[in-house]
Amino acid sequence: MGLLEKLLRSKVVVWILLVLPGLWPLWPIFGWPDSSVLADPLKFVLHHLGFTACILLAVVLAFTPLRVLWPKWGISQAVNRHRRLVGVAAFVYAALHLATHVVYETGLDWSQLGHVFQVATTKPFQLVGLIAFTILLALAVTSPTFMLRLLGKHWKPLHRLAYVAAALAAYHQAAARKLFPMQVVWIFGPLILLEIARVLRQRQNAAGKS
């Protein structure tokens, strides 16, 4: 077993990997202050949290194609031990992103809450993000083992909504800037390629069996 595989099998290591991105904004705000970040620190945090949520969503969805394509590869076995943890982390970052948006847009003036909600539900760009978040919320709530038992055969179709959430998140991220940001391609491009390869492999396997 290689070192990387050993590390990735460890829950502690994965926890650290998931928490670190959340701590990163502390560095340019408090550690080594960066004027372009301090100009609007909350916006930096807002974008960073959304960015991290998108990455984790793409990463956790890549686990299944990895397992289908390379079932005997140690790394793909190791990461698939942490499907629930990484998925819930994606939801947590999305929730923090939404909470930051509310603080940013209201400036803590809660009389603005209604207006912020009205804007979020009438601008397609924001509504799409909100729907993606709602899906992740439903998936996080139904992620404990007892919920899996409770839902039985309905659990899997429900959790396939994660793909819908990813597509919506990709659109939301692309529309967040004035010009199309290439990071959307870097984040979701590899996932799309893996999914295509996985579907082809599964067809091959099915044809081999019949």
């Binding site: 847009e105 209201t106 803590l108 804007v119």
Partner: peptide, 24 residues
């Protein structure tokens, strides 16, 4: 008159001394 993707009713104050209350 809103931007199609966001509201123009308020604005974030750049370089505000308050981290959280920086909107007008």
């Amino acid at each position: 008159v809103d931007h199609p993707r966001w509201s123009q009713a308020s604005e974030q104050i750049i370089g505000s001394t308050s981290l959280l209350r920086s909107r007008q």
